[in-house]
Amino acid sequence: MRRNKKSRKILRGTCSVLILIWTLFPVYWMISLSIRDDAELISSLSLFPGSFTVKHFAQLFVRNNFLMAIINSLYITFTSLAFALILGLICSYILARARFKYKLKGPVLFWVLLVRVIPPIAFALPLYIMMNKFSLLNTKIPVILAHILVNIPFIIWYMLSFFSGLPEEVEESAEIDGASDMQLFARIVIPLVMPGITAVAILSFMTSWNEYLYGVIFVQSPSNFTIPLSLSTLNSEQELAQWGSIAAGGIISLVPIALFAIFAQIFLIQGLSSGAVKE
């Protein structure tokens, strides 16, 4: 019996280690590629770097104006995320709680889902034409709007189960205590679903941060380049891939996501521990 337990422990340990290697190795590989010099990169690669250089990082900033791309990416991601969260959460709450005339709730929800299900390229061209008509194309607005467009349906559907899972008694008692609709939403409901919001915010952040298709179609000026766009020029079908610079750019672009996720985790745990109803 004891032995069985021990062997299970060992098995579990090996499995975790394997999974850990499986998930972390790409990150390690990227870091190790980014610090090798060019000569090593084009010869046969060993598991551990044999040279050390920060040239690739420096080159990104000097030659590819990477700082600009980082600022643009941050600006686009945070603006679109803020809009998408505000609009998405409100919509989601209403869709979870309100009753609709003519049984419209089902069709509306389905319609929202469609935006997410239809391949993005289907939207890209009509949007391009619209944005062009409004002569918005040489601004960041089309990209921001497109990111909001992709993220809102996701937020609505993700949060729907959180909102409808809330015990209605809480809202009722708040109403009896004299809370207005807005107070109810902002003070009572939102804190209760904070873990959900955090999770959906991290996911939306990633979607927007890594988004390439809308970026490449809408961005018309080098001053509006985002990180994925900037990195794509380093890895062309026609040219040799510049592994060092790509890896360095990948690492830099990883940092904000990691920071955001760590920061958001605080809310993930906080939300879980707040008991609302005594059962």
Partner: peptide, 26 residues
């Protein structure tokens, strides 16, 4: 609630428009 939502929307749209003007085609 409806009024506040409407206000919020108007606020957001104004934001978009202002950015559009600042950044837009000079």
């Amino acid at each position: 609630m409806k009024r506040k939502l409407a206000l919020l929307l108007i606020f957001l749209m104004t934001g978009v428009l202002i950015t559009a003007c600042v950044e837009g085609d000079k």
